[in-house]
């Protein structure tokens, strides 16, 4: 009897994991990766989505409720990106530590000035975000901004280890600054490169590198392009050619493949976040890889 109940507990995973000091629930892979950089082995990081999932449309799965129940810190993009699923998780998990307003609740977008705040709020405009475009992780400068806030939050939540977090944060920021300088230098070659994007998830990337957006395949944010939309973009490209069509790894590949073939420009599947392809295993590799892909298109 006793043995079987022990077995049951083991099967169900009753607190089976080795004890890290803080449980972190990250909505997106980039914030999980950043938490690992800043918290090292003091954190047990769990990520709600993968790079192959559309963070707008994630189901509030039971497994996410149990993971959020244990969390000491929730880090999500915010700016309504997770509005379709996170509120349900927060209500069902009943975890006081990670409710909005608590130190355990952190929206990365709060550390970054958001672009494309809509002047007009109307669902006829598609899936618009009232606070601005939430896809901040496409610019590595924003990662530094979020890192400052996140490391301070870790120190606040886990005061015992604050020296550790401070040291890791300083080391990360130093490495990141060097990497930023390198990326900025590499990216200078891309300035003014005309591109087509599938979803307007690249606003911060375009702005960082000074790329010129010729067209967006989605007629409105979140609305899949019809063949008429694609034909219109193709006609536009005849007059104003672009060097590449960009989409995220999680997006439907057909619209950009269609355009790539007919407009005879390369289709660039950028990782969008950590884990978006095999070469994007961490935050440093993410931007190395993004720039590598963009530069290959610029050179072709």
């Amino acid at each position: 009897m006793k043995k079987s109940s022990v077995l049951l507990f083991a099967l169900l995973g009753f607190n089976a994991s080795a004890h890290a000091d803080l449980n972190v629930f990250a909505c997106e892979p980039e914030w999980a990766a950043l938490s690992r950089e800043l918290g090292g082995d003091k954190l047990h990081v769990s990520v709600a989505t993968t790079a192959l999932q559309d963070p707008h449309h994630v189901q509030a799965r039971p497994s996410l409720i149990t993971r959020l129940r244990k969390a000491d810190l929730l880090i999500c993009t915010g700016a309504d990106l997770e509005i379709g699923w996170l509120p349900v998780l927060l209500r069902r998990a009943g975890n006081a530590r990670v409710q909005p307003g608590q130190p355990g609740y952190l929206e990365a977008a709060s550390a970054v000035p958001l672009r494309e705040r809509p002047a007009r709020l109307d669902r006829a405009q598609g899936d618009v975000h009232p606070q601005g475009n939430p896809h901040i992780q496409t610019d590595p400068h924003n990662i530094a901004r979020v890192a400052r806030v996140l490391s301070r939050r870790l120190m606040q939540l886990d005061g015992e280890n604050s020296a550790y977090y401070e040291q890791r944060s300083a080391r990360f920021m130093k490495r990141w600054k060097e990497a930023l300088a390198n990326w900025d230098r590499q990216g200078a070659a891309l300035k003014g490169m005309p591109v087509v994007v599938q979803h307007n998830g690249w606003t911060y990337l375009l702005h960082w590198l000074g790329l010129e957006r010729i067209a967006t395949l989605e007629p409105k944010p979140g609305v899949p392009p019809s063949s008429a939309d694609l034909t219109r973009v193709l006609a536009l490209l005849k007059q104003t050619p672009a060097r590449a069509v960009i989409r995220a790894a999680y997006q439907d590949g057909r619209p950009s493949a269609w355009l790539s073939e007919r407009a005879e420009i390369p289709e660039l599947v950028l990782p969008f976040t950590v884990g978006g392809d095999d070469q994007s295993g961490d935050l440093f590799q993410l931007y190395d890889r993004t720039l590598e892909l963009l530069l290959s298109a610029a050179g072709s």
Partner: peptide, 11 residues
């Protein structure tokens, strides 16, 4: 009243 069990499986 609901109770969420402290397990990795949702219970």
């Amino acid at each position: 009243l609901r109770w969420l069990a402290p397990t990795d499986t949702f219970l």
